[in-house]
């Protein structure tokens, strides 16, 4: 229970502070919604939010396609090629963000690719892809391969097998993978910070700038909105009916 308190204390204080009149936190000086009102008319924040959502949607799509294919291949085939494949897909999971951001920045600089939304999407797809594969491989392990062999024996073709057997059974796994990829993309700061160019600022990068140079109270209010959105997504996904086993 103490651990839970430790995990939630800073968040609770943050929420309280977002309604505090005092500009720099500290003692309570009265309730206000002023900080939220200031956020509503803030054009750079709105631009960053839109950009974040575009980047997250595109990266989620790409990483879902790549991740599904990779998980399927890794599940279905074994051997030398797959060992290399496995290593390449899993390595990004344990590499610190700063290293991944740094190495991608060098690649883009060396290849002469201008930094912007495109480079952010490439970077996000790369790390989301590993997580999607991880989730889907877990699902495929519970999957009965005999279903496919039976369908093949009965004369079904691959398009039918994919639409009638694989997608319905892997649906919850795909949804979980997509949700994870989307959240990771929306949340990423370090990698985005390194590979973002002018005009392609995402929300976390913008928030970072505000933390360093802006009003702390405004950051609090923005954080509360950000958290409320993530919590809503996570709770909805938890309340969705679970896959029947």
């Amino acid at each position: 229970m103490a651990a839970l308190l430790f995990l939630y204390l800073p968040i609770i204080v943050l929420v309280i502070q977002s309604f505090n009149t005092a500009r720099y936190g500290g003692s309570w000086q009265g309730f206000t919604l002023d900080w939220y009102r200031q956020l509503a008319g803030n054009a750079p924040i709105q631009r960053a939010t839109v950009n974040t959502l575009i980047v997250a949607s595109v990266s989620t799509f790409f990483s879902l396609v790549l991740g599904t294919l990779a998980a399927w291949v890794l599940h279905r085939y074994k051997g030398g090629l797959q060992r290399l494949h496995y290593l390449l897909v899993y390595a990004p999971l344990v590499i610190p963000d700063i290293l991944m951001g740094m190495s991608l920045l060098l690649l883009f600089v060396q290849a002469g690719i201008p930094l912007g939304r495109g480079t952010i999407i490439i970077a996000h797809t790369t790390f989301c892809f590993s997580y999607v594969t991880l989730v889907l491989i877990g699902r495929l392990q519970d999957f009965d391969d005999n279903l496919i062999d039976a369908a093949l024996d009965l004369g079904a073709r691959w398009p039918t097998i994919i639409t009638r057997i694989l997608l319905p059974l892997l649906g919850p796994g795909l949804a979980a993978g997509a949700l994870l990829a989307f959240t990771l993309s929306v949340d990423d700061f370090v990698i985005t910070f390194l590979v973002a160019g002018p005009g392609s600022t995402t929300l976390p990068v913008h928030v970072y700038g505000m933390m360093k140079f802006g009003s702390p109270a405004l950051v609090n209010a923005l954080s509360v909105l950000f958290m409320a959105a993530t919590f809503a997504i996570v709770l909805t996904s938890q309340l969705l009916p679970k896959e029947k086993s």
């Binding site: 800073p10 943050l14 936190g25 949340d187 928030v207 933390m211 609090n220 954080s223 919590f231 938890q238």
Partner: peptide
């Protein structure tokens, strides 16, 4: 879920919360 939930909040926000504290 309660244990994982803070992990889903943006980590910059969590850091900033500590700065406020």
């Amino acid at each position: 879920i309660l244990v994982i939930l803070p992990f889903w909040t943006n980590f910059l926000i969590r850091i900033f919360a500590w700065k406020t504290l």
